[in-house]
Amino acid sequence: MGFKLLSKLLVYLTASIMAIASPLAFSVDSSGEYPTVSEIPVGEVRLYQIADGVWSHIATQSFDGAVYPSNGLIVRDGDELLLIDTAWGAKNTAALLAEIEKQIGLPVTRAVSTHFHDDRVGGVDVLRAAGVATYASPSTRRLAEVEGNEIPTHSLEGLSSSGDAVRFGPVELFYPGAAHSTDNLIVYVPSASVLYGGCAIYELSRTSAGNVADADLAEWPTSIERIQQHYPEAQFVIPGHGLPGGLDLLKHTTNVVKAHTNRSVVE
């Protein structure tokens, strides 16, 4: 069995187990497998329904001669939608809004960016022009300005110390501490036991640490421990890039980060 097929099978099995364990909360999309990078042309966006009122959005972007996937989250909030992270750029984010209108038909009224990198804030200006209120932590807003990236308009308070959590509509926002970046936030959907790890969490097929220019490698494993301790009931975990899975993604990420750190020390 090929690795790609095995990865998709694991996603399907995880979703099936969740649907059985929580039949009222989960209505997993039966329309197909989780979209992969090879299936999404740059400039297009796919939506994948995880649970009743919960979707991931998947886009792709060219970077350094390669094409990478990027995940975000959409959560229903009454007759409105909360968006977590842009679709990595203005063109993708405009396509995301169009796809949401086509498939869901509810307005996106608020959006949260989970850290300051372009795959999370690139497209904020498109959201703002569409009347979406954009939010991020003060740290993310400051770092985005320093980096020359787009800056969300509103500040999220109460997320300055490791372990801080605040309720934001249908989700809980959690600051686990520094990891992929010093400002990275985690998003949890309690009604569906869905954990969105953003770039602080890796997919299972990833074996290298990737972009760690703004990471705190020493603190990252401790931050992941905080996530595990705060959300032990999480059933569906979405990484910032690639295929979702279960809580095993947290341990896998820790292993990859520690291996990278150990290699760096040896070198």
Rank of each mutant, 00 (worst) to 15 (best):
G72H: 01
A213E: 10
V37W: 09
G242D: 02
N211S: 07
L127K: 01
Y196N: 02
A51R: 06
A130N: 15
V194F: 02
A129N: 15
G169E: 06
H180S: 00
A165L: 12
E80G: 12
T114L: 00
W55L: 09
I17A: 05
R263I: 03
S62N: 15
I186N: 12
T86S: 12
D64N: 12
Q235D: 05
V146H: 08
A59M: 03
D216C: 04
V257Y: 12
L156Q: 04
R120G: 09
N71S: 06
D85F: 00
R206W: 05
N262R: 08
K4L: 02
R226P: 14
T109I: 15
A51Q: 07
I201D: 00
Q61L: 05
R128C: 03
S38C: 14
Q229D: 02
A19I: 12
R141P: 01
P239M: 01
I74V: 07
T253G: 01
A111Y: 04
N92L: 06
V28D: 03
H154Y: 02
P239A: 06
A178D: 04
V11S: 13
L6Y: 13
A51M: 13
T86G: 12
H117C: 04
R120D: 06
K4R: 06
V108L: 13
S137Y: 02
P239N: 08
G148E: 07
A51D: 12
A90E: 05
V266E: 13
F174S: 11
L204T: 06
T60G: 10
T109S: 14
S264N: 10
N92I: 08
A213N: 03
F168K: 05
D216N: 05
L83S: 12
L5N: 04
P138F: 12
L249N: 15
D118Y: 03
R263S: 09
G197T: 04
G89N: 13
S30N: 14
V126A: 09
A111F: 04
G246L: 06
S7Y: 15
T207L: 09
L81Q: 02
V237P: 01
D164A: 09
S223L: 03
A133K: 15
A200F: 01
F63G: 07
A90T: 07
L195T: 07
H154L: 09
A179C: 03
V171T: 09
T261Q: 03
R46F: 15
R226C: 11
L159I: 05
S160T: 11
S223A: 03
G240S: 11
E225A: 07
E225Q: 04
R46I: 15
K102F: 01
S162A: 11
A87Q: 12
V266I: 00
S205Y: 15
I84W: 00
E157L: 03
Q61P: 05
N211G: 08
G242Y: 01
A90D: 06
V257D: 01
S22V: 06
E203T: 15
V11G: 09
T36M: 09
I100C: 04
E150N: 08
V54Q: 02
